[in-house]
Amino acid sequence: MRVDDILKKGTLKGASDIHIKVGSKPFFRINGEMIRDDEDEPLSEADFNEFLSNEKVDDFLVEKFKKERQVDIGYGLSGVGRFRVNMLYQRGTPAAIFRFIPFDIPDLDSLNLPKVIETIALKPRGLVLVTGVTGSGKSTTLASMVDIINKKRKKNIITIEDPIEYLHKDINSSIIQRQVGYDVLTFADGLRGALREDPDVILVGEMRDRETISTALEAVETGHLVMSTLHTKDATETINRIIAAFPLNEQRQVRLQLSATIEAVISQRLLKRKDGNGMVPAVEIMIASELVRDAILDAEKIHNIKRSIEINREIYGTQSFDQSLMELYKNGLVSFEEAKEYSSNPNDFALKVRGIG
Rank of each mutant, 00 (worst) to 15 (best):
V130K: 08
S144Q: 04
I158Q: 03
E161A: 05
K138W: 00
P114L: 06
K155I: 00
L167W: 10
I105T: 13
A188N: 11
D109V: 15
I158M: 03
S110N: 14
S144C: 14
S173C: 10
K138V: 09
F187Y: 15
D107V: 07
I148V: 11
K154M: 08
F103D: 14
D189I: 14
I148N: 11
K151S: 14
T141K: 08
D162T: 08
K115W: 02
R192E: 05
K123M: 13
D147G: 12
V133H: 11
K155T: 08
F103A: 12
D183H: 01
A188I: 02
D170L: 03
S139H: 01
I105K: 13
R153L: 01
K151V: 00
L113S: 03
G181N: 04
Q179H: 01
R192H: 11
I117F: 02
L142Q: 03
I157C: 10
N156R: 15
G126V: 03
V130M: 05
N150F: 13
H168Q: 10
H168P: 09
I117Q: 03
K169A: 14
N112Y: 02
G190F: 15
R125S: 09
K123P: 00
T186L: 07
N150T: 15
G126D: 09
A194K: 02
I149N: 03
T141C: 05
N156A: 02
L122D: 09
V146W: 11
L185K: 14
T134V: 12
I117K: 02
P163V: 03
V146T: 10
I164A: 12
Y182A: 05
R153H: 00
V130D: 13
D104E: 15
D109G: 04
K151W: 03
A194V: 01
I164N: 13
T119A: 14
L127R: 12
R153S: 02
Q177K: 11
V180Y: 01
P106S: 08
I120D: 06
D189E: 14
V130S: 13
D189R: 10
P114M: 05
I171S: 11
G190N: 13
D170V: 06
L122M: 11
V146P: 09
G135K: 09
M145V: 02
A188F: 02
S173Q: 07
K138P: 07
T134Y: 00
G190K: 08
Y182D: 00
D162W: 14
I176N: 12
G137Q: 06
T119K: 15
D107C: 09
T119P: 00
P114A: 04
T134K: 01
K169R: 15
D109E: 15
Q177Y: 10
L113D: 01
